[in-house]
Design a protein around this nucleic acid. Structure first.
Lengths: 233, 233
DNA sequence: GTCTATAAGCCGATAGAC
DNA sequence: GTCTATCGGCTTATAGAC
């Protein structure tokens, strides 16, 4: 087995520590220890502790936005779109739960400029969901009245997956996404003329490619951005 | 207007700072500044920064557990029970969103002994919900198959309220709780022989007394526990 | 590419004056 | 009850040897 590159060891160590203890609760020495380095050596790979967080957040949000765009491009009707968005969000929050937890909880730790940028991306992502829910209500696909409230409820239930999912649990990320998609349709009272709509009734594209779209840019593996980070600084 | 007691100013300042920046991201000097004191004076009121967090978490979880017990005592059928649990949880997470956010996110920051204690309380609370969902499935009130999954989904959607609720928004905490209760029944596919059950069909006790049960012990106002904290130390 | 050594500053907490 | 002053330790980050 080939030894893991130092960059990746740092990335994974930081992700695990930030997810468990929070960004502010993690010292550079802890990251160094967990990576098998000393504190000073860390700065050969990263610009600063802040830069490291910025890259985690930017990578995660970029991946999520691009994957959501892929979902919208591959589907047309609100029910299919929403089912795919939920499957994607849940599977990503299960497969990459450490990264997702950091992205979801550490926005306030970013320096103001970056915080605004990430906040805007978060708003855009939420807007995609709300747009689909709204369109579904207008088209008579969903029986709920308040699109904003339903969207917030759905995002909440899907996002919290990152806090409780365990890889050794009974369900794979993809199977979990399917279960949550069904609960989503129930919550929205999806259906027409009193006949409930279930996931089984729908032709839904496979989630795999959407998860792949997330991992293409959103996953780890681009830690070698120290140069880019220094250029930006 | 009577000036706010120093204890309460410290409590509210710490709550606001812990909620926004996290426990680890907040210094005792910041708490002191926001309370109109110097760092040293803080220790006339608290044993340590850890003690302060412990009191927030213990107070919040105790309040939630006692209020949930009041719900269980005041209702009998699973649908009513769950509707009341959701109304309570949502209204408390809206009315006391700073405290709720801290309780929900800062468990890992506690020293191990306290962490275990709070973790056990959290498990107990989740167990109450799961028990009601399970009982409802067994009784034929709910159409979902997996009680564990449904419970996690519901707790997730209700807990996230603390992150997005704004007091100046369109809904009061109580009205929001009612909307979430309805979405809960939909998600669970509540009803019998194909006829959906709505909140309007149920006789549900008023939430007010349950919220009051939370606030009796769970709210702020018992900061004067420095003595108690010192006794314990 | 990794180390040691260290700078400069903030941290939680205490002592003691008033 | 609040202050000032301060301790020892830990923080992020850099410099320079190897």
């Amino acid at each position: 087995m080939s030894p893991m590159p130092t960059e990746d060891r740092i990335w994974l160590a930081a992700l695990a520590l930030f997810a468990r203890q929070g960004f502010a609760g993690t010292s550079t020495r802890e990251i160094a220890d967990a990576s098998g380095l000393t504190a000073g050596s860390l700065y050969h790979y990263m610009g600063s502790k802040d830069d490291l967080l910025e890259q985690v957040m930017l990578g995660g949000m970029t991946g999520l936005l691009e994957a959501a765009a892929a979902v919208v491009a591959a589907t047309e009707q609100p029910p299919q779109r929403l089912v795919s968005l939920v499957q994607l969000h849940v599977a990503v929050h299960a497969r990459h739960r450490l990264e997702a937890k950091v992205v979801d909880r550490e926005i306030e730790q970013l320096p103001p400029a970056t915080r605004k940028r990430i906040g805007a991306m978060r708003d855009e992502y939420e807007g995609v969901w709300r747009g689909v829910v709204s369109a579904g209500i207008d088209a008579g696909d969903f029986g709920v009245a308040d699109a904003r409230l339903a969207t917030l409820a759905l995002l909440g239930m899907c996002t919290e997956v990152a806090t409780w999912f365990r890889p050794k649990g009974p369900l794979t990320p993809e199977a979990l996404g399917l279960e949550f998609a069904q609960m989503t349709l129930s919550l929205l009272r999806a259906g027409r003329s009193g006949v409930p709509l279930t996931v089984a009734d729908l032709e839904v594209p496979a989630v795999g490619p959407f998860i792949a779209a997330y991992e293409r840019r959103g996953g780890y593996g681009m830690v070698g951005a120290k140069a880019a980070s220094r250029r930006g600084a």
